[in-house]
Design a protein around this nucleic acid. Structure first.
Lengths: 191, 191
DNA sequence: TCATTAAACGGAATCGGATTCCGATTCCAC
DNA sequence: GTGGAATCGGAATCCGATTCCGTTTAATGA
């Protein structure tokens, strides 16, 4: 066996250029997907990032992985917004509504990212990390809202996640006025 | 110019074998997509239908068109169910809930079709026919429910369509207990 | 019934885009 | 500065959708 050196976590600090390129690719992907939708092609991303295709694949094993990574990044920003802008809200139910509304805002502004964000929020599988983060903010607002009596006590975080997932679909499919969807969905949580 | 014969609608009755094959392909596609999800491949559908790939493409110009066709067929069945089972419901609000619930039932039973059905119901574009059909049933139930006072008067058919669209996404992404989603969504329509 | 012809068939060939591979290059530790 | 592992780049490969065209078949009417 390896009599080697490294401890339980053999994470070696990546080479500087590697880290830089990873960021470039991610940023480029974000931009390209935003502009052209997620049907944009890998070579296009590579070109935009100023690297070879091989490099894109070194950092993201597949197109799907790249899209997911972009989605998670976006999702992290959304959650951050929730933490700083919505959690502090005096009325928790309003904070929750604002949180969901904000998600709609981001999604509709960057249609091309809908699918990836929908996946990041929705599915129970992916890393789980993303979903966990999202549930933290929503969970706290939800708990407070229940105390306030502005949300039914039987509502669970999962219910909110499903609303968000549906919201993404509504926007992606251009199914209608998503603000109405949000309004109705929130109404559905009230006592 | 064509001094020809046929009237405004030059629809010539298709050859018998053509019509038969079209049906075979559609049925095979439905089965294959149900079993393997919509990532199933065209050759697979052709094989299942017992025809050549060329024949599949003769009847459906593209993979997307085939998927859409399957979706529309499914959607038509759903609407039919709505017309016969839900419209007659004494309490319109219950009928509407049952309608939506039934859609969830079908979608979750045949996960592979979610995407196509979501598209058939959701998007404002495709033929419009599908959506129009769906709106008829939902619209009537909605109108009655408003009269009953069990649904807010400001609710529109589009709101219901968005709920359905979201439902499809929830199921497709396995985002949670879709029955809860439906329950909450319906609650959101009440006064 | 049989010939004629447009329509439909089948599947090999083509095309496009994701993914893999590997020689050339670049960082980092010594 | 040198050695060698980690990266890079992009040509080559793979895979599945779609097209093309020679062959077959259903419909028509002599």
């Amino acid at each position: 066996m390896a009599p080697s050196s490294t401890s339980p976590t053999p994470h070696r600090r990546p080479r500087a250029d590697a880290e830089r390129n990873r960021t470039r690719v991610l940023d480029a992907a974000r931009e390209v997907f935003r502009a052209r939708g997620d049907e944009a092609q890998m070579p296009e991303v590579a070109r935009a990032a100023g690297v070879g295709i091989g490099t894109v694949y070194r950092h993201f094993p597949s197109r799907a992985a790249l899209i997911a990574a972009v989605g998670e990044q976006r999702q992290a920003e959304i959650v951050e917004f929730g933490r700083t802008r919505c959690l502090p809200s005096a009325a928790a139910a309003d904070g929750l509504a604002a949180y969901i509304e904000h998600i709609g805002e981001v999604l509709s502004a960057e249609r091309g990212l809908s699918a990836s964000i929908e996946a990041a929020f929705g599915s129970t599988e992916p890393t789980g990390e993303g979903r966990a983060r999202a549930e933290t903010v929503a969970g706290q607002l939800l708990a407070r809202a229940k105390e306030e009596g502005t949300v039914r006590p039987d509502v669970e975080v999962g219910d909110v996640v499903m609303i968000v997932c549906g919201l993404a679909a509504v926007i992606r499919n251009n199914a209608g006025d998503w603000r109405r969807y949000v309004r109705n969905a929130c109404a559905g949580l009230r006592p």
